[in-house]
């Protein structure tokens, strides 16, 4: 009997999803589904998760301190993982009832769309453009393009990098952010582009470049005894928890949870725990 109910609800959930997909983003399809399932108090999207008994969250596995899978132990950890567990705790009363799916910048959107994950907590920057496609919570972390240098170099900020070499990853954001910042400061540095982060770190270690510059979050994962991340941030970016348009219950719930964590000081504790201050 229980199985049948689960099946029925799962089907209902799928139909709800289809309805959302079919009706377009604006229609509040979730509330229709909510009334159909007969419980007005709990939105259908949340109820579906309760019935499923597990929360599915898309996370990164390659950004240490945010979402990182240890290649040796196979364990995933980071502040975003903690957030996901908090959400599971709130919804299901059990922080371990969460299923992680690794996402990349490319796949996190589609995986939300096809319902494979309920939330994406994956260094997902809130932009107006993206807000059209997904619900974002208030930001849980503020980040920006940061600079990592060798401690021994004595470099204090961007101004000290005049005429030096800065290694960036091959993408528009950090290069553009640095170029405009340097223009303001009326200085010039060589910006070298590399295909992957580890290569930039290796180049910094070997002295090929004087500075490694990408998003602070990503940079934090490459910090070691000989290097330091400078406090300056360029091109500030806000990370938020994303959910699918239409799953408004989920969106509100995540937002409430974030607000609760922030007002109770729990969020600061998490951020501090991962050394992200």
């Amino acid at each position: 009997m229980k199985k049948v109910t689960t099946c029925f609800l799962a089907i209902l959930f799928c139909i709800g999803m289809l309805a959302v997909a079919g009706c377009g983003a604006d229609k509040p399809a979730a509330s229709d589904a909510a009334s159909a399932s007969g419980s007005a108090a709990v939105p259908a999207d949340i109820k579906a998760i309760k019935d499923r008994g597990v929360l599915k969250v898309g996370i990164k596995v390659d950004v240490p301190k945010f979402g990182f899978k240890d290649p040796n132990t196979g364990e995933t950890s980071g502040m975003e993982i903690d957030l996901a567990k908090q959400l599971a705790q709130e919804i299901l009363g059990d922080a371990s009832k969460v299923e992680f799916e690794s996402v990349t910048a490319k796949t996190r959107g589609p995986l939300l769309d096809n319902g494979e994950v309920d939330y994406v907590i994956a260094t997902f920057t809130i932009t107006d453009e993206r807000k059209k496609s997904y619900n974002f919570t208030e930001p849980y972390f503020k980040d920006g393009v940061a600079l990592m240098v060798k401690k021994a170099s004595g470099i204090q900020g961007l101004a000290d990098l005049n005429g030096k070499k800065i290694g960036v990853a091959q993408s528009a954001t950090s290069k553009k952010a640095l170029e405009s910042a340097m223009k303001e400061k009326n200085m010039k540095a060589d910006i070298l582009e590399f295909g992957t982060y580890p290569e930039i770190k290796t180049a910094l270690d070997s002295g090929r470049i004087d500075c490694f510059s990408v998003d602070g979050a990503i940079l934090a994962g490459y910090l070691d005894d000989s290097t330091v991340i400078l406090p300056e941030r360029y091109d500030p970016q806000l990370y938020g928890i994303a959910s699918k348009k239409g799953n408004d219950g989920l969106a509100k719930f995540a937002n409430d949870t974030i607000a609760k964590l922030q007002s109770s000081g729990e969020m600061d504790k998490i951020i501090e725990k991962w050394g992200l201050k």
Partner: peptide
């Protein structure tokens, strides 16, 4: 692959 400034580097940098 080592930011060498050759044709492929510039092409890829420009494209990305």
């Amino acid at each position: 692959m080592i930011a060498g400034g050759d044709l492929m580097y510039h092409a890829d940098s420009w494209a990305s």
